[in-house]
Amino acid sequence: MSNSDNWIDLRSDTVTQPSDTMRAVMAAAPVGDDVYADDPTVNRLQDYAADLFGFEAGLFAPSGTQTNLIALMSHCGRGDEYLVGQEAHTYKYEGGGAAVLGSIQPQPIANQPDGSIALADIEGYIKADDIHFARTRLLALENTIGGRVLPQEYVKAATALAHARGLNTHLDGARICNAAVKQGISLRQAVAGFDSVSVCLSKGLGAPVGSVLLGSKALIEQGKRWRKMLGGGMRQAGIIAAAGLYALEHNVQRLAEDHDNAARLSRGLADIDGLTVTAPQTNIFYVDMPAAACEPLRAFLAGQRIRASVGPHTRLVTHLDVNADDVERTIAAFKAFFKDWRA
Rank of each mutant, 00 (worst) to 15 (best):
R188I: 10
G102C: 08
V327G: 01
F334I: 04
K224W: 15
D195N: 14
Q112E: 15
K224M: 10
L265D: 08
I272R: 07
S309R: 13
A134T: 06
F285T: 03
L161C: 05
A256C: 02
A263V: 12
A140H: 09
V209R: 13
A343W: 14
S186C: 07
F337N: 09
A299I: 04
E142T: 14
F194V: 02
S202G: 01
S211P: 06
G238P: 01
H319F: 10
P280T: 03
R225K: 11
G206I: 08
W226Y: 14
G146Q: 12
T14S: 12
A110S: 10
A88G: 04
Q66M: 15
K156C: 01
S103W: 14
G223N: 09
D13A: 15
V191I: 04
Y154H: 07
L245A: 04
G102N: 07
V287N: 03
C177F: 01
H89Q: 02
P62M: 11
N283V: 04
F285P: 11
G166Q: 12
T278V: 07
A190R: 08
P280I: 04
R11K: 15
G231S: 05
L150I: 05
R254D: 03
T67A: 03
A24H: 09
R165M: 05
S103Y: 13
G102Q: 07
E81A: 15
G96P: 04
D260W: 08
N251W: 00
D271G: 00
S211T: 13
P296F: 09
N178T: 03
A179M: 03
D288C: 08
N168C: 00
M26Q: 15
T144D: 05
L72E: 15
L150E: 02
S266M: 13
A308N: 01
R315Q: 03
